[in-house]
Design a protein around this nucleic acid. Structure first.
Lengths: 212, 212
DNA sequence: CCCATAATTGGGATGTCTCTCAATTTCTGC
DNA sequence: GCAGAAATTGAGAGACATCCCAATTATGGG
């Protein structure tokens, strides 16, 4: 288990540290039990904290679900943005984001499971993810790299493909090349030529990590 | 609410009829509350039956979930097979199945919601759905209609696209042409030419229904 | 080092859920 | 239309969840 929130809150006040512990614990419980089946008691216990302490920090389970999910999404987006600074071409960016997201979720399975689960529970999160993905896709259309009409449906289909890919990797049903294969499909769907899609989607990838 | 199971069990013994009533009720509750949040009490109440009666017919909630989900899948498959009898070309069949499934789930929203939810809860169901979809896809490869290598990942990606499409239609975020658009994407992913994919995926469609 | 404030604790009131079972009602074959 | 079998009923035991709150413990500025 990676205590991502706690390690980042190490230098903050006690309240913030406890809150972070609860959020890390929640990620683990959500991954193990699923968000719906998770109970406040379980989260508190996993965080080594009394039941009542939970309610000093969160109104109820929904609130911690939201906090955890949006924080995870923000972190992943920040990591991707940072790593993509130097990438100019929209097809490179789209492929990179797809592949790194899948690998990130796979390499931190608790985060992966919790995040995938959360996307289905929180419509607002799904919309945010779609909007994020869409930025680079629109960029590609503007630059003439993608030669198709892009609409919400296409972006949501991409999202569903990525979620399925993460799910399959977490279940052990697919292997390390899954990200590249999904990215290649996506580039083809965006009108990129077969040759270029293959070249871009299969570039060597340096793994990212969520903690520095 | 369509009492699909009950209407089919009309001429059977009392036990079978009560069982069918419970299954219809379960579909409604699963759709409204989600499978996980649904309680046995709620299902019994919706079926107009005492709590204890439930346990004469099902060991617990998991058992009715399985029964309902697999029965729904079997019904949909039977309906599709029946309607596709005359379709020979694999691209026509694939497109037809995708579109009809999406429309079927949309026109019977309770079934649609319950089924989509169930696919994520029951790995065995997802595998069964994938296997079903794969039959026509493999047929297309054999016949030379689809000019790509087909593997499990591609089939699962198709499944995820269809599930997302159903979800978006049920949420009212996409309209009646969703099925055709998804089918067109799928045919393109299978190597069908743009012109033919457009022609096949946008044929006029006669709506199917789950009850005769 | 002290004390006001903040944070934590854990027990308990209240509610819901699952599953059982003895009593009762409904079926069905003769 | 009756007797035995089958199905149904609903109250309740037991497990567990949420959320509150009075008592206790920790924190950190002066």
């Amino acid at each position: 288990m990676q205590a991502v929130f706690a390690s980042r809150a190490r230098d903050e006040g006690k309240s913030a540290r406890t809150r972070a512990r609860l959020m890390d614990a929640a990620v683990g419980v959500f991954a193990r039990e699923g968000i719906e089946a998770a109970s406040v008691n379980e989260i508190a216990q996993a965080a080594d904290v009394a039941n009542g302490t939970f309610y000093n920090h969160f109104k109820d389970k929904d609130e911690i679900v939201g906090s955890v999910a949006f924080a995870m999404a923000r972190d992943v987006a920040a990591r991707l943005d940072e790593a993509m600074q130097d990438l100019e071409d929209a097809d490179e960016r789209t492929s990179f984001a797809t592949r790194q997201f899948i690998e990130l979720a796979t390499s931190a399975p608790e985060w992966g499971r919790a995040l995938v689960d959360a996307v289905w529970h929180l419509p607002a999160l799904r919309r945010q993810v779609s909007a994020y993905a869409r930025a680079d896709i629109d960029r590609g259309v503007r630059d003439g790299v993608f030669k198709v009409e892009v609409d919400d449906l296409l972006v949501d289909l991409f999202a569903s493909m990525v979620l399925m890919a993460v799910f399959l990797r977490l279940e052990g049903e697919e292997g390390a090349d899954t990200g590249a294969r999904v990215a290649e499909h996506q580039l083809r769907m965006l009108g990129v030529s077969a040759a270029r899609a293959k070249r871009v989607a299969w570039r060597t990838l340096t793994p990212l990590s969520l903690v520095e």
